[in-house]
Amino acid sequence: MEKVNPLKKITGFLHDEKGKISILDEKHVMGVWALFQFHITFISDEKEESSNQIWMNLITNEKSEFMKQQQNRIVYQSAPLYHYPIPTDLNMDEAFVIAYNKVKSDAEMEQKQRRQDQHLQKDIDRIETYYKDLLKENDRRTARKGLSEDKVKEIATKSEAIVMEMDKQLEEIKKKSYGHTEITLDHGIIYFVPILHYDIDISFRSERKRQTLYYNPITKQFDKGAENPAVIDGV
């Protein structure tokens, strides 16, 4: 990043910003990422297991898909080569909650797709058709002439029993298909990566604001940090 024009790259990244962009400060800092490896178990009539890896940027407290995709480019060292400062306070608890909620949301989406599975719907249709035919056949008996009051009650009781049995069968097949999901943290890893910290000034007409950017040499991408509210020159 130092060997190229950083302002050009920053301007390209902030292409939606109006006004003049200038660099106020540039310095080396230590970026920090947390890798959370989750184990997901879907339990129904069978057990299915999978995993989900979430990378969190602890400087910005946001998920980092680019870092996950580019993790093979990270060079590991047994001892640190750099001792740069960490530019902000880290909130590991909040990062974990964000990562966990993402995994939970993905698992719920997968479970929802299971409920929409065509094979399940075919089984539901088959059960409903079978018991509805039984109900129709049973209801035809009430149309017969000369039925006693006790016989009418017997037919009505049987209809209720058919409906209850249908609901029971539907509930069982849905439970087998829907199941429930268990999410556990398998392990976590903390990564320290040297990055570049930029304080940016953005001036548009009489307004100015400051924006913090972090340049990641692994992903070749910028991440936005803190943004100060706009101020009016001369006020």
Rank of each mutant, 00 (worst) to 15 (best):
T184F: 01
Y191G: 13
H197A: 03
D186M: 09
K176P: 03
Q211G: 00
L185F: 10
I218R: 03
T181V: 12
G179M: 04
I190R: 11
S203Y: 11
E182W: 00
I190Y: 09
F204K: 06
M166K: 15
Q169I: 00
P194F: 00
T219A: 03
N216P: 00
K175G: 11
T184D: 07
I173R: 09
S177N: 15
E171Y: 06
S177M: 07
F192R: 15
I173Y: 05
V163H: 10
S177V: 07
I195M: 10
K174P: 04
D186F: 05
R210H: 14
E207S: 07
Q221H: 09
I162G: 13
P217A: 02
S203N: 14
D167G: 01
P217I: 01
I183E: 01
K220L: 12
H197T: 01
F192P: 03
G179F: 05
E182K: 03
G179T: 08
I189M: 14
T212C: 00
Y215M: 02
Y198T: 10
V163R: 13
V193G: 01
K220W: 06
R210P: 06
R205P: 00
H180A: 03
F204D: 09
T184G: 03
D167P: 02
E207W: 09
Y178S: 04
H197R: 08
R208P: 03
K175L: 09
L170Q: 06
M166N: 11
Y214D: 01
I190S: 07
E171R: 08
F222H: 05
T181Y: 02
L170C: 06
E172L: 10
P194Y: 00
P217T: 02
H187L: 05
R205Y: 04
K175Y: 04
K176W: 06
I162R: 13
L170R: 05
I189K: 14
L170I: 11
S177T: 07
K175A: 12
L196C: 09
K220H: 12
T181R: 03
L170E: 06
N216F: 04
T212I: 08
H180Q: 10
S203F: 12
I202W: 07
T219V: 05
E182A: 02
L196D: 13
Y214E: 00
T184I: 04
E182G: 01
E165I: 09
I162P: 13
I190D: 06
S206E: 14
V193E: 05
Y178M: 06
P194N: 00
P194I: 00
S203D: 15
E182R: 01
R210S: 12
L185Y: 10
G188A: 13
I202L: 11
A161W: 09
K209E: 07
M164D: 15
I173A: 07
F192A: 12
T219Q: 03
L196K: 14
F192D: 10
L185D: 11
R205E: 09
